[in-house]
Nucleic acid binder design. Structure first.
Lengths: 104, 104
DNA sequence: GAATAATACTTCGTGATACGATGTATTGCG
DNA sequence: CGCAATACATCGTATCACGAAGTATTATTC
C-alpha cells in the first residue's frame, strides 16, 4: 500500500494489536502483517512515539536470555482507538466523494 | 481531521474534484471543503505535484482581468482514482482489524 | 468612496514521519 | 558450522501538510 495512505493508520494498528493483551515488537509486526506491511524501524519508532504520548506502557522482561519489551495499552490508548472509530465516518464520507464525486 | 490521516487521501480528493469537469484552485478548495479541510498552500502544492506526475494538465485563461489556471484530469489521473478504489478494500480490512482486533 | 471581504495564485520554512540501511546479539535448525 | 529466525535500536533521507506572508484584482458594505 501507498506509504502516504498508511500514515495515521499505523499508530492505531499498533494500538489495536496490543489492545486485548500486552505484546512485544516482533510479535506485533507479525500480527499486523496480514493487514498492513510495516518495517521494524517503523514499528519501533511508533512504539516510542506511543509511549511518549502515554498511549501505552512498557516493561522489560527476560525471555530466553534476552530482554524483551512488553507493551501494554493504557486508557488513553483505548480512547485513541475509540476516537479513530468515530473519525471513520469522516473517512467514509470522503471515500464516497472520491468515487462518486457528488458535490454538496 | 488528523493531518497524518489525510495523507494519501488529499491527492485523490483533488483528482475527484476535477474528474468530471476542469476546475481551478479556488473552486477546488470550496468543492472539497465539505468533506475535508485543505489549506491553499496545501492545494497548490498538490496541484503542482499532480501536474509533475502527469495526473492532470494545466492551461491558463484570463478571467475578469486575472489569470486563472484550469486543471484537467488526464487518463493517468483517472487510473489513479480507479487504483484508489481498489486500494479501499485493503483499508477496510485494516479498519476491521483495528475495531475488532481479530487476528488472522 | 473608503474599507473590507472575497477571489486567485505563489513561495518559504517547519515539523511529522515511514522507510531502508545498518548494527548488535542470541537461539534453533539442518 | 552456517543460516534463518528472533529481538531491539539508531541514523539519515524523502515526502508532505501546514501556517505565514506576499501580490493583485473585484465585489460588497458601511
Amino acid at each position: 500500500m501507498d506509504i502516504q495512505l498508511k500514515r495515521g493508520i499505523l499508530d492505531v494498528c499498533v494500538l489495536a494489536a496490543i489492545k486485548d493483551e500486552e505484546s512485544y515488537g516482533y510479535k506485533i509486526i507479525k500480527d499486523v502483517k496480514p493487514y498492513i506491511e510495516m518495517s521494524e524501524s517503523t514499528l519501533y519508532t511508533i512504539l516510542k512515539r506511543l509511549e511518549l504520548s502515554n498511549m501505552l506502557t512498557v516493561r522489560s522482561e527476560e525471555h530466553g536470555g534476552r530482554l524483551r519489551k512488553y507493551y501494554k495499552i493504557t486508557k488513553a490508548g483505548l480512547n485513541r482507538l475509540a476516537e479513530f472509530k468515530s473519525e471513520w465516518s469522516e473517512i467514509m464520507a470522503i471515500y464516497q466523494f472520491v468515487i462518486r464525486g457528488d458535490k454538496r
